[in-house]
Amino acid sequence: MNAHSLKNEVQQMGKWWHKLIFLCNRNNQFNSNIPITDSFEKINVNLVLSQELIHISQKNYPLHVEDILQNVIVNTNETYLLQHIDILFDPVLQVHPIRLLENISKNYKLVVEWPGKYEDSRLVYAEYGHPEYFTCHELEGKVFLK
């Protein structure tokens, strides 16, 4: 991935049904040194959800996760860089991270720092056997490898 091709895709994503780009690092250790991130509205998903879910009963988490994110993703003219999304894989939330992001991306432009890897045309989070292990091969949007 280079910054120029990513910038071009971001400019085009307003025309897509799912305005969604996943950024993955080839070596599974993501660092965000993307030159164009200054033009993104950055959202720390772990922080946002943690601050709001503390006031909600655990059994109701699944009902509120998307609404909480929708409260901070509000401007259709912005491109949002979602960082630190690890909380979405917590089994207690009972959400499918990809479907959640796809749903939001129908209305908002999302660039997501994927905290796992992309292999065999699948996004993978955690190691097999781990309680938060997640894999998805059917996804909308585009994947960029660093």
Score class of each variant (00 low, 15 high):
S57R: 11
D86N: 13
I56C: 02
I98K: 10
Y80P: 04
D86H: 10
N60P: 02
I68A: 01
L93S: 07
H84F: 12
D90V: 04
Q70F: 01
T79S: 14
S57T: 02
L47K: 14
L93A: 08
F89N: 09
T79R: 10
Y61G: 03
N77E: 11
N60F: 15
L49G: 02
N77L: 09
L49R: 04
Y80T: 05
L69G: 05
E78P: 00
N46V: 02
H55L: 09
N46E: 12
I54T: 13
E66H: 12
D90T: 06
N60W: 09
H55C: 00
L93N: 07
Q58V: 15
S50C: 05
I87C: 08
S50Y: 02
P97I: 01
Q83R: 14
V92M: 13
Y80L: 07
L47D: 13
K59C: 09
Y61R: 00
T79G: 12
H64S: 12
L47V: 08
E66W: 01
H64V: 09
L88D: 03
Y61C: 04
E52V: 01
Q70M: 12
E66G: 02
D86F: 05
I73P: 01
F89I: 01
V48L: 07
I73V: 10
Q83A: 09
K59D: 12
H64N: 12
H96G: 06
P91R: 11
V65P: 08
K59S: 10
L49N: 02
H84S: 14
I87K: 05
I73E: 06
L49F: 00
D67H: 13
Q58P: 09
Y61E: 03
E78R: 14
S50R: 11
L88A: 09
I73H: 02
H64L: 09
S50D: 13
V92P: 00
I73Y: 01
I87H: 03
V72Q: 02
D90M: 04
S57G: 10
V74Y: 07
R99S: 12
N75F: 05
N77Q: 12
I98C: 11
V95R: 02
D67G: 14
L93C: 01
N46W: 06
E66A: 13
V72I: 08
T79F: 03
I56H: 00
P91G: 08
